Computed example of a mutant assay.
Amino acid sequence: MGVTETAKSVTINHESGSSAEIYYYGAHVVSWKAGGKERLFMSGKSALDGSKAIRGGIPVVFPIFGPPPTSPPEYAALSQHGFARNQIWKLDKVIMDRPEGVSIRFLAPPPPDSFAHKYRLAYVITLSEHQLCTDVHIINEDDKEFIFQTLLHTYLAIPDYLKLKVSGIDKGTTYKDKVLDGKMVQSEGEDIVIDRPIDRVYHKVPSQEIHVDDGAGSGFKVRFRGFEDVTVWNPTEEVGKGIVDMEDKGWEKYICIEPGYVRDFKSLAPGEEFLGQQVLTVL
């Protein structure tokens, strides 16, 4: 057990042998090992030197999701997925280091000067034998309304995407199908399989729990609270081969299940707090 710091990252270890490594760059979880296996996918072509966002693991998306909106101006000027994943965070506190779990808190730096909003952004990572819990805390420290989007862009490692089955989306749940140019569709509640590019943003998922069957006798349960939406993404070869920092056939080795608040902007009144939680459990 324990917490180990290096110049680039923090590693937390549980007595069961599970571990997680978090880079200061983006507070990015780049590794989660449980049951003797790596549970997150990382592209072998990803930059890890801070020159660009990391491809794989668990990126923190904030204060926008996807391409920037047309307004307000300070949001329109942002790059894809905002700036949190490209900032240098700091380890703030070891919250817990006990047999039931190891928990640490990271704090984000202030925003760029061009983004004139006052907030506190913290990220708590908690590791136990079979679980990894990641909590995003946002407090509006301004005297006016603060709006944002946030999401955890989680890349779950799987042995073969063709054998994958994703379930837990309730019938009637509305989703935006980005493959179909943003067409709004109602889910029939069917299991999701990867037989073509999938890029769907499910809105306000009632179950707040997604199950991933990896087709090899294992998988994940993804539970979320505060986060109401979830993106399911795998580009397949059709799109994946055009991603410059994606390793060859990398898309065969992961499924992105991404809890967030992204269907609209979340609004916080002065002093109000948002908590978005993701709990990953190995099945």
Rank of each mutant, 00 (worst) to 15 (best):
K45G: 01
G44A: 14
A53T: 09
F41T: 02
A27S: 12
G35M: 03
G36V: 04
K45Q: 10
W32T: 00
S51D: 05
S43F: 03
G44Y: 01
K45C: 06
G57H: 06
L40H: 02
H28S: 10
K33G: 08
K45H: 09
R55V: 00
L40I: 09
G50L: 11
S51V: 13
G36T: 08
S31M: 10
D49N: 13
D49T: 02
L40F: 13
M42H: 03
A27E: 04
E38C: 09
S31C: 07
G44S: 12
V61Y: 01
K52Y: 02
G56R: 14
A47G: 12
W32H: 03
P59G: 02
V29I: 14
G57Q: 09
A34Y: 01
A34N: 05
R39I: 03
V60L: 15
A47T: 11
G44I: 02
G56V: 06
R39T: 03
K52V: 08
A53E: 08
G35K: 12
A47C: 08
A27D: 02
G50C: 05
A34C: 06
V60N: 14
A53S: 15
G56D: 06
G56P: 10
K33L: 05
S46M: 03
A47S: 14
V61M: 02
V60E: 15
S46K: 00
A27Y: 04
P59T: 04
G44P: 04
A47W: 09
E38A: 07
S31K: 13
G44K: 15
E38R: 10
G36M: 13
K33M: 14
A53G: 15
K33N: 14
A53W: 04
V29C: 14
M42R: 11
M42A: 00
K52T: 11
I54A: 05
W32S: 02
L48C: 07
D49S: 07
S51W: 11
A53K: 12
G26M: 11
I58Y: 13
K45L: 14
S43N: 03
R55H: 10
G35C: 08
W32C: 01
I58H: 06
L48A: 02
V30T: 15
S43D: 03
S43M: 06
G56C: 04
F41V: 06
S43R: 07
W32L: 04
P59V: 05
W32Q: 01
S51Y: 05
D49I: 05
E38S: 10
I54K: 15
G50K: 10
V61R: 01
S46W: 00
G50F: 08
L48Q: 03
S31H: 07
H28N: 09
A27L: 09
E38L: 04
V61N: 00
P59C: 11
S46Q: 00
I58V: 15
K37H: 05
I58T: 12
G35Q: 11
K45P: 01
S43T: 04
G50M: 10
S31R: 13
S31D: 03
S43G: 05
K37C: 00
G26H: 14
H28V: 13
G50T: 02
G36E: 12
V30R: 15
A34R: 07
S46G: 01
F41S: 04
D49L: 12
K33W: 01
